[in-house]
Amino acid sequence: MFQRLDASSTPVRHVQIWLDGTPHQVPDTLTVAAAVLQLRGWQGYRRHVDGSLRAPLCMMGVCQECLITIDGRANRQGCLEPVAEGMRLERQGGGAHDA
Rank of each mutant, 00 (worst) to 15 (best):
V12W: 00
V26L: 09
V36D: 00
L67Y: 02
L19V: 10
C63T: 08
A35Q: 05
L67H: 01
Q3R: 14
C58D: 14
E81W: 08
P56T: 07
R91N: 04
L39F: 03
G41P: 09
G95H: 10
R73A: 14
G41S: 08
T29P: 07
G41Y: 04
T29Q: 11
A99Q: 12
H48C: 10
G51A: 04
G51K: 01
L80Y: 08
P23I: 02
T29I: 12
L39P: 03
Q38M: 14
Q92W: 04
Q25A: 15
Q64K: 13
L5V: 12
D20F: 03
R73D: 12
T22V: 15
L53T: 14
Q43W: 08
Q25D: 14
Q25P: 01
S9P: 02
A74W: 02
L67G: 00
R13W: 00
P27G: 13
A99S: 15
I68H: 05
M59R: 06
V12I: 14
Q3W: 06
A55Q: 10
P11Y: 04
R40G: 06
Q92S: 13
V12H: 07
I17L: 09
A99P: 09
E65Y: 02
R54N: 08
V83D: 03
P82H: 11
R13T: 13
G61A: 08
G61L: 04
Q43R: 15
S9D: 12
T22W: 00
R46Q: 09
D28A: 13
D50Y: 01
D71E: 06
R40D: 03
A99M: 09
L67N: 01
A55H: 14
L89S: 06
T22F: 05
E85R: 09
M60Q: 15
Q25R: 15
V32L: 07
A96W: 02
A33E: 02
C63G: 10
V62A: 13
L5F: 10
T31Y: 04
A96S: 11
D50M: 01
A35H: 05
C63S: 08
V83Q: 04
R40T: 10
E65C: 03
G41A: 06
M1S: 13
T69V: 07
Q38D: 14
G21Q: 07
C66V: 07
H48Q: 14
Q25W: 13
R54T: 00
Q92E: 15
P11C: 07
T22R: 14
L67R: 05
L53D: 05
G72Q: 11
L53Q: 12
P82S: 10
M59C: 03
M1Y: 03
R91D: 02
T31Q: 08
G93E: 01
R54F: 00
L67I: 01
P27D: 03
S52K: 14
G86C: 02
C79T: 04
Q92F: 05
P27E: 05
S8R: 11
Q77V: 00
C79P: 07
Q38W: 08
S9C: 04
P23K: 07
Q16L: 05
D20R: 05
